[in-house]
Amino acid sequence: MRDLAALPDLKLALVQTSMHWQDTAANHEHFSALLEQAQGADLIILPEMFTTGYSMDAVALAEPEDGVTRQWMLNQAKKLNAVVTGSLIVRTSDGSYRNRLYWARPDGTHASYDKRHLFRMAGEHKHYSGGERRVLLEVKGWHVRPLICYDLRFPVWSRDPYDTDLLIYVASWPKARRDAWNRLLPARAIENLCYVAAVNRVGMDGKGYPYSGDSQVLDFQGETLCAAQEEDGVFLTTLTGAALATYRQRFPAYQDADAFELKF
């Protein structure tokens, strides 16, 4: 079993901002400038579909799996010596379209996660294919599970009380449902006995929907460590493994968790 108390501090940078509607080049320029403020972070988290805004125009906007944004993320990761993560629209080699999160590392390697739960109220399931697997990634010894927006509403998909230190959610979660966002995030932290970092956007999208942000970092009791509210900018916070280890030793609810298997 890993010694969580021995984990080095993990510095997070949450990038909460508006974006240019369906304009990848403009968003690359916009986020490049913002990421200058994330110097010193170990993990930099961008919103869902950060190159285009949350769009169903997959055919027109999709990039190939090895497209310009993946390379942009890898370049930023190397420049900042940090993992850079966020989702975008991707066309896969089999011809399907995915809402894909890339995890770009400073050493030039990457991993990915495809959004499992597609937001049918916006018709996302008609334009994209859902992911088939969960992913557990690592940075500085920390185990991180990345998820995307609507995934937040499905606790079984997030559930892992044994080995996840940090859950991250990248989102384009509209202002009309901000109460659900702010209630579900603490629940995921509490039930999984882990940290949660969630990054949403602000501003208005090209269809006139407003976003309130509410990007935040929560500890394993659902207590707020960082709250961006509706501000535009980069928000920094630091996680400690010792605090997580102490709490899990004092309150080992994971030992009574139900065993289950996910079927596809």
Rank of each mutant, 00 (worst) to 15 (best):
G108K: 04
A171H: 06
N182F: 02
V202I: 15
Y97E: 01
V144D: 01
Q221F: 02
A189P: 02
Q249I: 01
V15F: 10
D151C: 07
D163Y: 12
K175I: 06
V144A: 00
L118R: 11
L236F: 04
Y128N: 06
R134D: 13
Q71N: 05
P161R: 12
H143M: 09
E48W: 10
R98A: 12
T69S: 14
Q229N: 14
Y211D: 11
I89L: 10
R145G: 11
M121G: 01
M56P: 00
L152P: 10
D205R: 08
R159F: 13
A60H: 13
W72I: 07
H125V: 05
H20D: 07
F119P: 00
T69H: 12
K78D: 12
V170L: 10
R250I: 00
Q76S: 09
A26H: 01
G95L: 13
D179M: 12
D107A: 07
Y209D: 14
R153H: 15
L10C: 02
C149L: 00
N99R: 04
S215T: 05
A60L: 12
Q221T: 14
A189G: 01
I45M: 12
L262Q: 13
H127K: 08
N75V: 09
L34D: 07
L136N: 13
L35G: 05
T224R: 15
P174W: 07
H20Y: 12
A243W: 02
P8V: 01
T224L: 11
L34S: 10
L61I: 05
E63W: 08
N200F: 07
A77H: 04
D163M: 09
W72H: 13
V84Q: 04
L236N: 07
H143Y: 05
D114I: 05
C226I: 05
V83M: 01
A242P: 00
L137P: 02
A41M: 03
H110S: 14
I168N: 08
Y54H: 14
Q37N: 11
L185E: 07
R188Y: 08
L118N: 06
S96L: 05
A13W: 03
D42S: 06
I168Q: 09
L152D: 07
D9I: 00
A243R: 14
T69M: 12
F154R: 11
M121W: 10
A228H: 05
D165H: 14
D23M: 00
Y150F: 15
L88R: 12
K175Q: 15
A198Q: 05
S172A: 13
V217M: 08
A60R: 15
G108E: 06
A257C: 10
E230W: 00
D214S: 13
H20K: 09
Q16H: 03
T164I: 14
G86M: 06
R120W: 13
P161W: 06
S215E: 04
Y195A: 04
Q16K: 01
T109W: 02
V59I: 10
V156N: 08
E261Y: 10
F251K: 13
V135S: 15
P252A: 08
T85G: 02
R159L: 03
A228L: 09
E48G: 01
T24I: 13
A257L: 03
N182I: 04
V68H: 09
P47E: 06
P174T: 07
P155M: 06
P106R: 03
G67E: 09
Q22V: 07
